[in-house]
Design a protein around this nucleic acid. Structure first.
Lengths: 257, 257
DNA sequence: ATCGACGTTCAGCAGAGCGGAACGATTTTA
DNA sequence: TAAAATCGTTCCGCTCTGCTGAACGTCGAT
C-alpha cells in the first residue's frame, strides 16, 4: 500500500518526516539509522534526531542494534478498532458466516477513499494471505471495495480516482475509469460485487455492502477464497443469500449501537 | 496512564506537539480544534496546522465537526501485536487457563519500564473493566508488573522508579520503595505475585512471570477477578499450579518461535 | 437581527530543524 | 594484527519553517 498521498498540502515538514520514519520502520519491521536514512531520503542526523524524539515519547524502542515501533501503538490500534461501530456489529455475524461457508470472511470499511479491514473471521479452509485486520486496500481492486464504491456518487468516485488512481495488480484488475463505472453499475444491479483475482492472483471474493436506510455506505462483508472453490460456488444462489443475510444482520446491529 | 515521560530530552518540538495532539485526540475520543488547543496548551492555529498535516497523511479524519484518529493506526497496532512473540505464544495457553478457572486471564510484557497488556482471554465469569489489550500499566501496582519486577536487577528497578515514580491508586497500592523491595523478595520466594486491590478497588489478581532459561523476563500471565472470588481461591494451591503451568507452556512456546 | 463559538486563514518574527562533516566504537577484511 | 569499512552519535551554522495572535467567515442559538 502506498504510504503517502499525492496531495501536496502537507504543512509541517518535521511531522511529515517523523511519520515517514514511522512508516519506514513499520515496513522494514525494525531498522537502523542508516537504513532509515536511505529509505526516507533524509540525512542520518535528521533521522537520529527524530528517533530520539520518538523514543523519548515512547513510540519507538531501541533494542538489538535497531529501532522498532513500540507497543504504544497497540493502545491506538485497539482504540480505533473499538471506536469503529462496525467492529462490534460484525463480530458475531461474520463468525457465523465463516463457520457456515468454511472460507475466510472479512468486514471492511472505507476512510479517505481507501478500504480498511476491520474484522476477520477465519474459516476451516482458510488460505494464508497477507490480508489481515488493519490492511489498507484500494477500493477499485477488491470485491468489498467495489461493493462500497458502487453506492457512492459519481463525483465522489471521481475524486477518489483522482486521489489514488487505479493501480493495476493483476491481469484482471480494472485499471480503466469507464470500465470501472460499467462494473459498478453491474454491482448495483446484482446487489453483490465479485472479484476474480483482481487484487491477488488466484484469489476470488464475493462482497455485499453494509448500508444505512438512507443509503450511507458503512462498509462491506467479503467472502474470500481460492478461485477454484469460489468460482464454482458463486453461481450458487445460496452463497449470495447467506452473504446478503449477514450484511443485513450487521446493518441491524449498527442501528442498536 | 501518563502521556509523557519526565525525560526532557525531547528534541524536535513540532513532532512532540503532533504526538501530544494525537494523544489528546485518543483520550478525548475525538475532539475539535478549540478543545484540543486547550488540552494541549497550544494556539488554535498551531493545532489546526498539525491536524491538517496529520489528515493529509491519513492519520486523522474529520467528520461530524470533529477530528478523530483514523484507522491507519489499526495497521500499526496489528503490526506490533504480531511482531511481539508473546502474542502468538500466549494465545492458546491463556485461552485454556481462562476456560478452566472461569476468570479473565491476561498476558502482558514490559517496555520502557511500563507494562503493556498483549493478549486477553475472557472467562465465563469475567467482570467488566477498562483493562484491555494495549493498556499500559505501572509495574509496581499490578500482580503482573510485580511478577516481572521481581526478577529485575536492583539498579534496573531503581531506574524505573526514578522515571515513573510509584503513584498510588488505592489504599493497598505500594507507594514506598523499601516496601516494594520487600514485596518483590516475597514474590521471588513464592514464585507468583499477588495483588489485592492495589490498582483497582475490589479487584484481585495472581500472576506468574514468563522467563527465559537465562533469567530474561519476557512478561507475565495474570488471572484477575473480584476480591471475594480470588481471595478465597489463592489459598488454593491448585490455582497457582495451573498458573505456573500456563506460564511454563508459554515459555516453551517462545523457544519455538 | 445580534451575539457567541467554532474552524479557518493570514503575516511576520524568532528560533528551531536540517544537513554535512567529524568523532568513537565496533565489526569486517586483508 | 592492523587497516578499513560501517554504524550510531554529536556538533555547528545557516536558512527557512513552524509558532503565535489577530482577523475573517460561517454556523447556531438566543
Amino acid at each position: 500500500m502506498s504510504t503517502s498521498t499525492t496531495d501536496e498540502e502537507d504543512r509541517i515538514d518535521a511531522v511529515v518526516k517523523a511519520l515517514n520514519i514511522l512508516e519506514a520502520l513499520w515496513q522494514a519491521d525494525g531498522a537502523g539509522v542508516t537504513a532509515l536514512a536511505e529509505r526516507t531520503g533524509l540525512a542520518k542526523s535528521t533521522v537520529h534526531a527524530h528517533l530520539t524524539t520518538l523514543r523519548s515519547k515512547g513510540y519507538v524502542v531501541q533494542e538489538d542494534d535497531e529501532y522498532r515501533l513500540s507497543l504504544r501503538f497497540l493502545s491506538f490500534g485497539e482504540h480505533v478498532k473499538h471506536a469503529e461501530p462496525l467492529y462490534a456489529a460484525s463480530e458475531t455475524p461474520i463468525a457465523e458466516l465463516s463457520e457456515r461457508v468454511g472460507e475466510r470472511v472479512l468486514c471492511s470499511t472505507h476512510q479517505n477513499g481507501l478500504g480498511t479491514v476491520v474484522n476477520v473471521s477465519e474459516g476451516t479452509r482458510s488460505f494464508t494471505s497477507d490480508i489481515d485486520v488493519g490492511t489498507h486496500t484500494y477500493l477499485h481492486s477488491s470485491a468489498g471495495g467495489k461493493a462500497m464504491l458502487a453506492h457512492f456518487s459519481e463525483e465522489r468516485i471521481d475524486r477518489i480516482i483522482d486521489e489514488w488512481g487505479l493501480p493495476v495488480f493483476t491481469e484482471e484488475t480494472i485499471g480503466d475509469r469507464d470500465a470501472l463505472v460499467d462494473e459498478l453499475a453491474a454491482v448495483r444491479e446484482a446487489g453483490v460485487a465479485y472479484s476474480r483475482g483482481e487484487y491477488l492472483q488466484g484469489i476470488s471474493a464475493i462482497a455485499a455492502p453494509i448500508r444505512d436506510t438512507d443509503g450511507t455506505v458503512y462498509g462491506a462483508v467479503t467472502v474470500a477464497g481460492p478461485d477454484h472453490r469460489l468460482a464454482n460456488e458463486w453461481e450458487d444462489r445460496d452463497l449470495c443469500t447467506q452473504l446478503l443475510s449477514t450484511a443485513n444482520t450487521i446493518e441491524v446491529n449498527l442501528l442498536f449501537s
